[in-house]
């Protein structure tokens, strides 16, 4: 369960970028996040992938209150979150294989398993012939697929993607979305920030819309009251 309650966020002493953000993401749910550029989508994702702490409000990630979670516990939470960054953020000095293998190696998975899982996934995203290629030699679409493979290699509980199909053709875009759906069927909570109305219409998942730092949520993500009443009844 991901739960935000009246969350506000500002960078340093600047103006508040996000205001009174309240929503819940049930385990295994799939949502799109839309909104114009500069509305706060990336900032909201940054809070979700634990790059920042909120300036106010409460965030519960996997039922852990972020405000009371000590810094040394954050890596364990982050390992449960897969992120596809809009600018990919691949490590340029590592090959496609090593980039994808990174989350597994950080988690201490044996090298034998790393070889198996990474090879399989790179094959699935059509990069078998590029496993030793450095990111700077890959096209935008290939980089995006490496970034997606890195985000999902460790089967995260929460997958966050910022425009994950922006640099691939329609066919690959739909294929990647089916991959996300497959993960979602296995219990991964998925939140995808996108401008693509085509994807939203095609897959029909609920949409959270952010504009000027405030969030409009669909019924499926506004279950805070429902959650609170559940807690009270317990």
């Amino acid at each position: 369960m991901i739960r935000f309650e009246n969350v506000g966020m500002r960078y340093g002493a600047g103006p508040e970028i996000l205001r009174d953000i309240t929503f819940t993401l049930a385990p295994g749910s799939f949502h799109f996040l839309t909104g114009p550029s500069g509305a706060g989508k990336s900032s909201l994702l940054r809070l979700l992938y634990l790059a920042y702490r909120p300036s106010r409000g409460l965030i519960h990630i996997f039922d852990k209150d972020l405000a009371t979670t000590p810094r040394e516990k954050l890596p364990i939470l982050r390992r449960k979150i897969g992120v596809v960054f809009q600018d990919f953020r691949l490590l340029d000095h590592l090959s496609a294989f090593d980039n994808v293998a990174l989350p597994l190696r950080i988690s201490g998975v044996s090298e034998k398993q790393v070889q198996k899982y990474v090879s399989e996934l790179l094959d699935w995203v059509g990069l078998t012939h590029h496993i030793n290629a450095k990111p700077r030699t890959l096209s935008g679409g290939q980089k995006q697929r490496v970034a997606i493979a890195r985000a999902i290699i460790s089967r995260p509980k929460l997958l966050l993607a910022d425009e994950p199909t922006g640099n691939v053709d329609d066919e690959m875009g739909v294929r990647l979305m089916y991959l996300f759906q497959e993960l979602n069927k296995h219990g991964t909570t998925v939140l995808i920030a996108t401008h693509s109305q085509h994807l939203i219409d095609h897959f029909g998942h609920p949409v959270m819309h952010i504009e000027d730092g405030t969030l409009e949520v669909p019924a499926s993500a506004s279950g805070l009251k429902r959650y609170q009443s559940m807690e009270e009844s317990v």
Binding site: Y49, L50, A51, E72, R79, I106, R150
Partner: peptide
């Protein structure tokens, strides 16, 4: 700095 940030976000501990 940027590589370290990515490593952190992927779940690397400071000790890593």
């Amino acid at each position: 700095n940027e590589v370290i940030e990515v490593l952190h976000l992927i779940g690397a501990r400071d000790s890593f």
